[in-house]
Computed example of a mutant assay.
Amino acid sequence: MPVESADEIEEILEYETIAVVGCSSTPGKAAHDVPKYLLDHGYDVIPVNPFADEIFGREVYDSLTDVPDGIDVVCIFRPSGEVSEIVDAALERDDVRVIWTQQGIRDDEAAARAETEGRAVVQDRCMKVQHRRLAA
């Protein structure tokens, strides 16, 4: 079962390093504004986007495979049809503890695979909204 309880989400929000797949360089887009909010609130945000070189003054990686540093949470800002492939890439890494799909994004089959591999999954929820509600 994907994570639903406030206590579990609050626990996840204690992790520090978030790789944002689909991070945007365009202010005003949720895929830009949400990671910026997280960065401004002390999280180590790692932008992942094959079409950008730098976002928030940080190096951008083409894929999760290219990220050399440890990742606690993979936050996904891509269409639901792309989630399965991203989850597979996350599962190849030993360090990823949580898969989080943003509001309007879900893939129940990929979520089940991640949970079978021992990863927590949050689907169809905005990380910024949850942070404001539970941790701010």
Score class of each variant (00 low, 15 high):
M1G: 11
E4D: 14
S5T: 15
S5H: 12
A6E: 15
D7Q: 11
D7R: 12
D7I: 03
I9P: 07
E10T: 08
I12Q: 03
L13N: 14
E14T: 06
E14G: 12
Y15S: 05
E16A: 07
T17P: 01
I18Q: 06
V20A: 14
V21F: 13
V21G: 01
G22C: 12
S24N: 12
S24G: 09
S25D: 15
T26C: 06
P27Q: 01
G28V: 04
A30H: 07
A31W: 05
H32C: 02
H32L: 05
H32M: 03
D33K: 04
P35M: 06
K36Q: 11
K36V: 04
L38D: 06
L39V: 00
L39A: 06
D40Y: 09
H41I: 03
Y43L: 01
Y43G: 01
D44W: 01
V45S: 00
V45C: 03
V45H: 01
I46R: 01
P47V: 04
P47Y: 04
P47R: 01
V48M: 04
P50L: 12
P50H: 10
D53F: 03
D53W: 09
E54D: 13
I55Y: 13
I55R: 04
G57M: 08
R58A: 10
R58K: 15
R58W: 03
R58H: 10
E59W: 09
S63R: 08
S63P: 01
S63C: 05
T65H: 09
T65M: 09
T65L: 11
D66N: 14
P68K: 15
P68E: 15
D69W: 05
D69Y: 06
D72W: 09
V73S: 05
V73G: 02
F77E: 05
R78S: 06
R78E: 06
P79Q: 09
S80F: 08
G81L: 07
V83C: 14
V83R: 01
S84D: 11
I86L: 00
I86A: 01
V87E: 00
D88F: 01
D88R: 11
A89M: 08
L91R: 08
L91A: 00
D94N: 06
D94T: 14
D94H: 06
D95N: 07
R97S: 11
R97F: 03
V98R: 00
V98E: 01
W100G: 03
W100T: 02
W100F: 08
W100Y: 09
T101L: 07
T101Y: 04
Q102R: 07
Q102M: 10
Q103W: 10
Q103R: 14
I105R: 12
R106Y: 14
D107N: 14
D107K: 02
D108A: 12
D108R: 12
D108H: 15
E109S: 12
A110C: 07
A112V: 02
R113H: 08
T116D: 13
T116S: 09
E117K: 14
G118N: 08
Q123Y: 04
D124Q: 14
R125S: 08
R125G: 03
R125Q: 15
C126F: 10
V129Y: 14
V129R: 14
V129F: 13
R132K: 15
A135R: 15
A135E: 12
A136F: 12
